[in-house]
Design a protein around this nucleic acid. Structure first.
Lengths: 142, 142
DNA sequence: GACTAACCGTTAGACGTCTATCGTTTCCGG
DNA sequence: CCGGAAACGATAGACGTCTAACGGTTAGTC
């Protein structure tokens, strides 16, 4: 008998991630948003980024991907690219009133979704999950 | 003071998944493969699928995505689409000798990668990780 | 001061994935 | 039988992401 033949851990993580991402996307769609839009609004709003490169890092994507989404969001009137005084290379991304309004709506959805995801899990379990995932990521990042 | 402001669990799962997926992709690339190729070879080799639709489900993608990859793999001589006797709608995917050879090489990489991912984790911890992830997925799947 | 290197964001092109739709083929109820 | 529904796989088009390469700007060095 060839043992239990368990599914690789990495595959389980990936599949779970896709399930969560898809559900989150649907939830955001009901409020007129998408995952990239939400992440950009969230990171841009804090204003703690100096350049687009930093904003991209905060969002978790590469530069060209951020450029792509900013193009769409600027076209939709959610953000503007403001010149940085004293450095003609960079641009600062700022939310328009419409962007701020969408942010508030999406935040409600995101908060509710996070509650839904953690349902039935104790604080300690969530903490252990974070720890285990961090271990996995650390194991492959060098 | 605004509290610890912890990152949402879903985001942590997604980020970890991307880190793992990227590292796995790199590992497979050294052996001349890619993630979709590996998953298709793995699922198709068991032969436990009747149709492409079932194969797609086993791989974890939709029909058109599988079609896309099969086109490339057939062009590369890794698999062939064989007619199903008695049903002119379906086609069975079978590995060529070259496909079988690549599968064996990629399997070594995949096994080694799984070991690397689980490094420093006890069996019980891995089991709990599986349980926690399954809970998250179950919470959003209805 | 001019030259080179570094930084910043965009463009171009690729890949993997999805939904919607279509043409064939098979099945089934009247 | 036969006509509509279901199943199967392919196509078309969209989206999010990536790497590689480019043009414009700043900084550092001799």
């Amino acid at each position: 008998m060839p043992g239990p033949q368990e599914e690789p851990v990495g595959l389980v993580v990936t599949r779970t991630s896709r399930t969560l991402a898809r559900a989150f996307e649907q939830a955001l769609a009901t409020a007129g948003g998408s995952t990239p839009t939400w992440l950009v609004l969230l990171s841009a709003r804090t204003g703690s980024h100096r350049t687009q490169a930093e904003l991209a890092a905060a969002v978790g994507v590469r530069g060209p991907t951020l450029t792509h989404h900013l193009d769409g969001m600027e076209r939709d009137g959610l953000v503007t690219r403001a010149p940085v005084p004293g450095d003609r290379r960079g641009q600062r991304v700022v939310l328009t009133p419409a962007g701020e309004e969408l942010f508030l709506r999406l935040r409600e959805v995101a908060v509710a979704f996070d509650r839904r995801v953690r349902a039935g899990l104790a604080e300690a379990e969530v903490a252990q999950l974070r720890r285990l995932l961090a271990t996995l990521a650390g194991n492959v990042a060098e």
